[in-house]
Simulated assay, not measured.
Amino acid sequence: MAVIQCQFYSEAINLSMGIHVIIPQNAAIQASGSAKLPVLYLLHGLSADHTDWIRHSFIERYAENKGIVVVMPSVGRSYYTDMKYGSPYFTFLSEELPEIVRALFPVSERREDTFVAGMSMGGYGALKLALSFPERYAAAASLSGGLDIVSRMNGANNFQPHELIAIFGDVAELKGSTNDLFYLLDKLKAYDGDKPMLYQCCGTEDFLYADNQTFRKYALDLGIEVTYDEGPGEHDWDYWDPQIQRVLDWLPIG
Results as ranks from 00 to 15, higher is better:
I224M: 04
G233C: 15
L184A: 09
L222N: 08
M197G: 05
L220I: 13
D238R: 11
A166G: 01
Y199L: 12
L208Q: 10
C202P: 12
F207L: 05
D241G: 11
E225P: 11
T214H: 10
F182T: 06
N179Q: 15
P196G: 04
Q243Y: 05
I165W: 02
D236V: 08
S177F: 00
N158I: 04
Y239P: 01
T227P: 08
L174T: 11
T204E: 09
Y199M: 14
E234S: 08
P242G: 15
D221G: 07
W240P: 06
D206T: 10
L174N: 12
L174S: 11
D229Q: 12
Y209V: 00
D170G: 09
D241T: 12
I167C: 05
G203P: 10
D211H: 11
P242M: 15
D192P: 12
Q243E: 06
A166W: 01
V171E: 11
D238I: 14
D221T: 08
D221P: 12
H162M: 05
A166V: 00
V171C: 14
G223Q: 03
P161D: 00
Q160R: 00
A166R: 00
V226R: 07
Y209R: 00
H162Y: 04
I165T: 04
P196K: 06
G193K: 07
D229S: 13
K217R: 05
Q243S: 07
F182P: 12
E225K: 03
G223V: 03
D170F: 03
L164A: 06
E205L: 15
E225N: 12
F159Y: 00
A172V: 04
G193F: 15
E163G: 01
S177M: 02
D180S: 03
D236E: 06
D180G: 02
G233L: 12
L198E: 00
K175E: 13
L188I: 01
S177Q: 02
L222E: 08
I167S: 07
A166C: 00
L174D: 09
T214P: 14
F168M: 11
L184T: 14
D241Q: 14
Q160G: 00
E234K: 09
Y209K: 01
Y199Q: 11
G223P: 10
L222F: 14
N212R: 05
T178I: 03
W240M: 10
T204R: 02
E225Y: 08
L185W: 03
L198A: 02
L208V: 06
L181I: 04
F159T: 01
Y183D: 15
P196F: 02
L220S: 11
A190G: 02
Y191I: 04
T214L: 09
D221W: 03
N179Y: 14
L208T: 15
A172G: 07
A190V: 07
P161H: 00
Q243H: 06
Y239R: 02
D211T: 05
I224Y: 03
W240L: 09
L184G: 07
N179W: 14
F182D: 07
K195G: 06
C201L: 14
L220V: 13
C202Y: 09
P232I: 12
G233P: 13
Y218Q: 14
A190E: 04
F215V: 15
W240N: 11
L222P: 10
D211I: 05
K175T: 12
D221Q: 04
E234T: 06
Q243R: 05
T227L: 04
G169S: 15
